[in-house]
Design a protein around this nucleic acid. Structure first.
Lengths: 219, 219
DNA sequence: AGGTGTATGTCGCAT
DNA sequence: ATGCGACGTACACCT
């Protein structure tokens, strides 16, 4: 990694055009071939950047970065205040939990936490407007379309309505109803869901984790 | 701005959980009160971060960051390799040339590229759920509700459906139909649009730029 | 390579 | 505060 602190001017031309007047900034050149220009504001976001693969050409007073599709970043260095390099070695990487993928994996083995007696027809059931998280059958033999979200917001309800409408065109799946599952569902999303005859189920992550899965409990 | 390079271990608990095993990383503390942990990969994204407002408490071997809503970032410093501070002064900020705005401006003078014989009733026609990009009349005297997007995705279709539903309540505007215009429209959005009787028109940006506007050609 | 959905998305702006 | 749309969204995952 290379940390270059300099008074510089930046021009980006690509998906849009952008210009940065001269000021002192941090230019961050990573080992992955990326480059980013940071000011002392904007939290974690750089003012300008280019992600790999890109070509970085450097002279005494200019860094020119180009990408395949005609994108271009020009950094004019007016004064270099510091130029520091360090070898960081390999990064062991990041472990995450609590994302939608984990939720789905947990729920797959705990279908009964969403509703008693559900059996799985298919996970990621494909439709031509996108995949349904879970397609299940209930004890009465009705098909249940399920959308899972980490945080249940309005847009998720709309997504679910689309899936239900789309699948209701298929006579093999009728009759059909929908279920909205999230660790937390926002009040307005609940209102919208209920107005669309969609049942909401909130399952806190801790509760999911502390229980054994249905599948496991069979053995 | 402060650039801290250290062998460190990071734990984030908040909207999700994340853990970083010990390794050499860059800890970036900005004047805006933000903090970000960067590795030598991942292009412009930090591995972990916290944006302001947040409270940063530092001891010899630990940085603890907390936010109002129970978010928490713990950085354990095993070995500090470098600790550099610099005053960057005010940043003059970023000037951008928008693309969405340009697209609309170009189309306004080229209504016939969306559909032959359109006349403009109003741009940014106001409704109580937001402004319609273009409201036009066609050769048959029908009102046409138009939504313009740079990239045509499903959510744009939904937006357009809401506008059409809303405006169809106004007897002065009936009969009414909708048109979805974008430089590129995604397949799933097309499917949804057509199922809602919405016509899709794709107009590449280059094509827009190379043509003269209708308005101009009148003179 | 292109399409789709997720994100600790973030960032504005309007309500 | 919440909702909604835009972003050079970036990014992983799939065909």
């Amino acid at each position: 990694m290379r940390l270059l602190i300099a008074k510089c001017e930046v021009v980006y031309q690509g998906r849009l055009g952008a210009h940065l007047p001269p000021a002192i900034r941090l230019v961050l050149l990573k080992a992955d071939g990326s480059i980013a220009v940071h000011s002392d504001t904007k939290a974690y976001k750089p003012l300008n950047w280019m992600s790999p693969p890109c070509e970085i050409i450097e002279t005494e007073e200019k860094i020119t970065v180009t990408k395949a599709k005609g994108e271009r970043l020009d950094i004019t260095l007016h004064e270099v205040l510091s130029d520091y390099r360090i070898d960081m070695g390999e990064d062991p990487g990041l472990a995450k939990d609590g994302v939608e993928a984990e939720l789905q994996a947990l729920l797959r083995d705990r279908l009964n936490m969403m509703e008693d007696g559900l059996t799985l027809i298919r996970r990621e059931y494909p439709t031509d407007i996108g995949p349904v998280d879970f397609l299940c059958r209930d004890t009465a033999g009705e098909t249940v379309v399920i959308e899972v979200k980490r945080i249940g917001e309005i847009s998720g309800v709309e997504q679910l309505v689309r899936y239900r409408d789309r699948l209701s065109l298929d006579p093999l799946l009728a009759p059909l109803r929908a279920l909205y599952v999230a660790t937390k569902i926002k009040p307005q999303a609940k209102v919208l869901a209920e107005s669309q005859d969609i049942r909401c189920v909130e399952i806190p992550l801790e509760k999911l984790r502390e229980t054994e899965g249905t599948r496991l409990s069979l053995f």
